[in-house]
């Protein structure tokens, strides 16, 4: 069992937006307001208790351990047989129209069964999803950690283009991976709050002032799924 994860190193990020654009290109994401799988938001310059900060929120879906987006999906679960792209082993699991893939921990959408109700879009405290209404049949959409690419040994598009090598991707459950090391000993942190603790698998690292500014502006403070 793997849990894919990303560490974003704000010290390496220069806020160039390459990641956000590469993602849009890779998945042909429409440019309607608020449509994105991956984004770059600028924060500041603003004062923090640790000094002036001008930093960024290069964001994406967190592929959470307890994905509340999945919880709220109203589509009746159906059983599916999954296969690991690493070792070929297989596993049965009943899934709704959005689900946490059993071998990778990646949260995906079964577009074939998504009814476009938008419940998951509303529920995500990180606003990681959008409802694609450019389709005849609207569907929810979001970051997939580039499942198609990583299952073929490619990096996610945003990671591949990152000009500062600020996005580090890998399997958290593999102790030899760089993400595992950064999470274990490199000070990479989850962006959570007292109220919202759903186990995001994107981790943040950087100067104290920048992490402070990022969390202050973007750590979710309210339950959006109840």
């Amino acid at each position: 069992m793997s849990q894919y994860a990303m560490v974003i190193d704000l010290d390496r990020c220069v806020g160039c937006h390459a990641c956000a654009v590469a993602c849009r290109a890779e998945w042909n994401v429409p440019t309607e307001e608020g449509y994105r799988r991956n984004w770059l938001k600028r924060i500041g310059p603003e004062n923090t208790p640790h000094g002036l900060s001008y930093t960024f929120y290069p964001g994406l879906c967190n592929h959470c351990d307890q994905p509340v987006c999945v919880d709220v999906c109203p589509v009746e679960p159906e059983e599916r047989l999954f296969k690991s792209f690493k070792d070929g082993s297989s596993k049965k699991m009943a899934i709704k129209a959005t689900y946490k893939e059993p071998f990778t921990g990646i949260v995906l959408i079964d577009k074939g069964r998504c009814e476009g109700c938008g419940a998951c879009v509303e529920a995500c405290p990180y606003k990681a999803r959008y409802l694609d209404e450019t389709l005849d049949d609207p569907k929810a959409d979001k970051c997939t950690f580039c499942f198609e690419r990583i299952s073929r040994g490619e990096q996610p598009a945003c990671v591949k283009t990152c000009i500062g090598d600020a996005r580090i991707f890998g399997d958290l459950n593999d102790p030899a991976s760089q993400v595992a090391k950064l999470v274990k000993a490199g000070g990479a942190r989850r962006m959570e709050s007292k109220v919202v603790k759903i186990g995001p698998n994107v981790y943040w690292k950087g100067k104290e002032k920048d992490i402070f500014a990022l969390f202050k502006n973007f750590a979710p403070m309210t339950k959006t799924w109840e």
Binding site: E26, L108, I109, K111, G112, E148, S151, R152
Partner: peptide, 17 residues
């Protein structure tokens, strides 16, 4: 798992992107 991501109809030949 991945094909479901390709488009709304699930009909696009792999690979997507």
């Amino acid at each position: 798992a991945a094909r479901s991501l390709a488009d709304g109809k699930g009909a696009e030949p792999m690979p997507a992107g």
